[in-house]
Design a binder for these strands. Structure first.
Lengths: 250, 250
DNA sequence: CGGAAAGTTGACGCGGGTCAAGGAATGTGG
DNA sequence: CCACATTCCTTGACCCGCGTCAACTTTCCG
């Protein structure tokens, strides 16, 4: 090893204001001065490798985490050992809200693709919220989004067919990639069939069969984890009606 | 009508400190002075009748609501008209977090049993949180609980059999009644079979059959909405394994 | 008393879970 | 570089849990 101190990746200076994801992440809607304050509270970590945990169920819950790049999987395990995938976290999205409950994370978060994440300790966040109303509102906004997203998921699992579930999953991924300036129609799945099936409440074989079926129907082309959505509109139509409506009757 | 002004029920003075639910509600863990401040922000409403809405999907979301008595049902409707029950709110529990998302409620909340609720405007809550750290923490705690509860529900809908779902539902109700100093084994269901089935992702007939089955097996006695859990332990055993575990493997 | 809403029960069939076998990609040691 | 194992994915055959349809009963409410 050279005597000169090795440059640690986590010392690389990247500020929230530089981050290309700022408009997806907490700083959204904040002014420069506010972002700077937020910036000081955020700890950037060195990249994490697939299989590493960001946190585990039962760990002391101290921080929110924002994903800068890569992909995380949230899941929890039951006493009898099997796993429930709760969701996937793409760049610009947050995890770790469930640590707020009793000071311990209820779920685990594991890295699917090499990822870099930012940690934001609850205590610092609380302090910042007190001095920065715009941040406070942004945090509340994000919490509301989390709750709403869970509600949509409950609807999906409670009422929808296997086809609709997979279609909704693909449309959701497409939307999220698009909002990150990536292709809405061509991407690689960061997760296994196992994870997809688990997440959607389906058997892995069902997921596989549905991919084959969708391909037959010309909705997409699939090769292992490579996906090309050739008929995104039709997929959206399948999901239509699953979307929340407004108050209809009085 | 008498000339003397009618006493309006919503003018009755009830403070948070008097409320018998305080230790289930926001004031939990707060000192007297803090509770008084909270008290001033809370608007108490006159009792609501079954079928009335606390709020509807699409309404401007301005407040959290705490249930003092009765029971609410949260639900949302899809474009094609059908309903997804998201949960039931018992005394001491809160609804309205999902209005934080974009300033509009994503779900609706309807009264099942004559209920009285307290409204807490977001703006006031935000101000209070800035001056009362204990309240801020309590709010975060409640948000964490909400997220965790949704996660458990995802697990239930994703992985569990019809029997386990109904058992889990009954055990949950039992626990919640018990923590409100009501009987853990004898209660009236505030909701219809329709609502139960919808909530659990089951057909109404399945719910009915399962009640009959559970009765045959001596787990409970049921007559329409009157429930006596005669073997709560066995019900809990059925749910065992659905409960979240700790981190098992390294 | 009549009509509607809620709940129960039975018959039937299908969506999707389970089991099993095999292929394709990736890794590992020789 | 090649055998071999492992993991991931696919595909087929079977079948069961639960949804659907239908008939009936009970309760509720004007």
């Amino acid at each position: 090893m050279p005597a000169r101190k090795k440059l640690k990746i986590d010392e690389i200076k990247v500020s929230c204001s530089d981050c290309s994801l700022a408009d997806l992440c907490l700083p959204h809607g904040m002014d420069a001065a506010d972002i700077e304050a937020l910036d000081k509270a955020v700890k950037r970590q060195s990249p994490l490798q697939p299989g590493q945990h960001v946190y585990r169920a039962g760990d002391a819950g101290t921080s929110l985490f924002a994903v800068r790049s890569g992909c995380l999987k949230s899941y929890c395990t039951t006493e009898d050992g099997d796993e429930q995938v709760l969701g996937f976290t793409l760049p610009g999205e947050l995890v770790g809200l469930d640590g707020l409950n009793d000071g311990h994370y209820a779920s685990s978060s594991i890295v699917l693709e090499t990822s870099s994440v930012c940690a934001l300790p609850y205590t610092q966040l609380e302090n910042l919220c007190n001095s920065l109303p715009s941040l406070h509102r942004q945090v509340m906004h994000i919490i509301g989004k989390e709750v709403t997203a869970d509600q949509e998921m409950l609807m999906l699992l409670g009422k929808r067919s296997a086809e609709q579930r997979l279609a909704a999953f693909l449309v959701s991924l497409s939307r999220r990639y698009k909002s990150r300036s990536l292709s809405a129609t061509e991407f690689n799945l960061p997760m296994s069939r196992q994870d997809i099936g688990n997440y959607l409440g389906l058997a892995i074989e069902t997921v596989s069969r549905l991919f084959a079926l969708f391909q037959e129907e010309g909705l997409l082309r699939v090769n292992r984890r490579q996906i090309v959505l050739t008929d995104l509109d039709s997929l959206k139509v399948m999901v239509e009606g699953c979307r929340l409506g407004r108050n209809t009757a009085s």
